[in-house]
């Protein structure tokens, strides 16, 4: 018997506003693999990510984490999950550092928030409220969690939005490191990604 895959979605069907986005969709992801969700706007990429994270319930089908339904092992699944939506989930009135420190208290983090911010070129902006940062800088603050988290599975919704070229390079490098360190990634993007072990899934 082979071990259960890390993440397995079987026969997933998603209906939004009476429109069927996809049905009987099978998704499989193993350690060290990345899954790249392609598709036109409104084809259900975000919906699929939300279903895989357990935020939304699929109309039909199940999502299994290491062979167990995510509904039955929610908390242990979430210790291994990092979901970054297209909303950066940062508080405008808090500083970059305060935002990251909060997430460190909320989930599994290691390493220093300051270091991650410096690494992402935000040195000197640590104590600035998020509302004073540019869109790209906000995105970098949100993405800094990828350098801090110990989660094994990353679900990334359009992480490259508003990033400049060096930012994109940085992020790709970090994703490659994560895959090499027995991680796994599901990502949606309109940008071409260059990663080893990447599988494409077109939802259109």
């Amino acid at each position: 018997m082979t071990a259960a895959p890390l993440l397995l979605g079987t026969q997933l069907t998603c209906v939004r506003e009476r429109r069927r986005l996809f049905r009987h969709l099978d998704v499989e992801l193993d350690v060290g693999q990345a899954l790249y969700l392609e598709g036109a706007n409104g084809s259900g990429k975000t919906s699929l990510l939300r279903i895989l994270s357990g935020l939304s319930e699929p109309r039909a089908g199940t999502v299994l984490w290491r062979g167990e339904n995510i509904r039955d092992c929610r908390l242990s699944y979430y210790t291994q999950l990092l979901y970054l939506g297209h909303n950066p989930a940062l508080k405008n009135d808090l500083t970059a550092l305060e935002n990251l420190q909060f997430y460190a208290q909320l989930s599994r983090h290691h390493g220093e928030a300051e270091q991650a911010l410096t690494h992402l070129g935000l040195r000197g902006h640590e104590n600035q409220p998020i509302r004073t940062l540019s869109a790209g800088q906000r995105r970098r603050v949100a993405l800094a969690r990828l350098w801090l988290s110990t989660a094994q599975l990353w679900l990334l919704d359009e992480p490259f939005t508003a990033l400049d070229r060096t930012g994109v390079q940085h992020l790709q490098q970090r994703m490659a490191e994560h895959l090499a360190a027995e991680g796994a990634i599901v990502i949606t993007s309109h940008q071409a990604i260059d990663l080893p072990n990447i599988t494409r899934l077109n939802l259109s």
């Binding site: 994270s53 357990g54 935020l55 908390l75 242990s76 979430y78 210790t79 999950l81 979901y83 939506g85 909303n87 950066p88 989930a89 940062l90 508080k91 405008n92 997430y103 909320l106 989930s107 599994r108």
Partner: peptide
């Protein structure tokens, strides 16, 4: 509105 609620729902704490 800003997506923090999703992060709370996905937290490994009750």
């Amino acid at each position: 509105d800003d997506g923090s609620l999703e992060q709370l729902l996905l937290s490994p704490h009750p």
